[in-house]
């Protein structure tokens, strides 16, 4: 048994490794993975790398152009833009890094269960899912943030919940494709329970779709998080955040170009990187992503 189990788990690792290598072998995948990796590294090591304290104001050095000392210049409060850009993605990455798996877990499981259950329960639950999807997501987010504040303890579950809802639909649709196949009928005929069928028969076949979907939802979640900051409802001011920096920098755009351009490049490169990687992942796994993209 142990031999079989070992062979199995090593097979799984091997598959993951193979997929990763295949993703990296595609031009878009290589670019995407390195961008994402770079940003994660930067967020992790940023605090030890930044040349200046991100909060340190200097009234004498407001809105300076790039120089050797401040190579992206300074903002309207005299803070070093480069340092702030380097740390501006930390909050976003932490929050979305926690909320994305949360969304995938709850959305994925609910979708699988509904897909398997079918019938009246499925029908009724999908009406509620439809109702949630019809609500403007950003508005729900804004209302909750306004009421409960912007701490991570609020943002993570909120984002996780909201972004899990479209995943329910995706997981359910993917389950429907699998469930009509005979190996599910075979498992049912053998008398396996619903949980076993979900875990053993369905999940391995839906996992790829969920992974790609999760990667994409991650980028959308980052977008939502930054939009929130940009609108002034997100990260509280002294903390550096790209969305917030772009909102602030816009006013002084003609004076301190890098105050906008820095965070713009940083945020865009991260999101584009995630999407390129997700696209390559979808191709490597043989999933057509575009057909299911907009839900």
């Amino acid at each position: 048994m142990s031999g079989v189990a070992q062979a199995r788990s090593s097979g799984r690792m091997q598959r993951l490794w193979c997929v990763l290598r295949d993703v990296a072998a595609r031009p878009s995948g290589a670019v995407g993975l390195s961008l994402v990796g770079f940003h994660i590294l930067l967020a992790a090591l940023g605090p030890w790398l930044v040349p200046y304290d991100t909060g340190a104001m200097s009234s004498g050095e407001m809105l300076e152009t790039p120089s050797m000392a401040h190579w992206m210049g300074t903002d309207h409060l005299g803070r070093d833009i480069a340092s702030r850009v380097m740390l501006g993605g930390r909050e976003a990455l932490i929050v979305t890094g926690l909320a994305t798996p949360l969304a995938m877990l709850w959305g994925g499981f609910t979708g699988l269960a509904l897909g398997l259950a079918g019938g009246r329960i499925d029908e009724a639950m999908m009406r509620i899912v439809d109702a949630f999807l019809s609500l403007p997501g950003i508005l729900i987010l804004l209302v909750l943030v306004m009421t409960f504040g912007t701490s991570n303890a609020v943002l993570v579950p909120t984002l996780g919940f909201l972004f899990g809802i479209p995943i329910i639909r995706v997981a359910r649709a993917a389950t429907h494709e699998v469930i009509a196949r005979d190996f599910v009928a075979a498992a049912r005929a053998r008398g396996h329970g619903a949980m076993t069928i979900i875990a053993v028969e369905l999940l391995p076949n839906v996992r790829d779709t969920l992974m790609v979907e999760g990667a994409m939802r991650w980028s959308w979640m980052l977008l939502a998080f930054s939009s929130l900051s940009f609108l002034g409802f997100g990260v509280a001011p002294p903390t550096p955040d790209w969305g917030l920096m772009i909102a602030d920098g816009r006013i002084y755009m003609s004076l301190a170009l890098w105050g906008v351009l820095g965070p713009v490049i940083a945020l865009s490169s991260l999101i584009v990187g995630i999407n390129l990687a997700a696209d390559a992942l979808a191709k490597s796994l043989g999933i057509d992503r575009a057909r299911k993209a907009v839900i």
Binding site: V4, R8, G11, A189, R190, G191, V200, P204, N205
Partner: peptide, 29 residues
């Protein structure tokens, strides 16, 4: 009572090894 299906492409889970496929009834029954 056991059932064998028409198309093995459809009745074998593509993600399971032969060992896993055979283990299911052996463990269950």
């Amino acid at each position: 009572v056991q059932l064998i299906f028409q198309n093995p492409d459809d009745s074998l889970n593509p993600r399971h090894s032969v060992a896993q496929i055979l283990a299911q009834p052996l463990k269950l029954y």
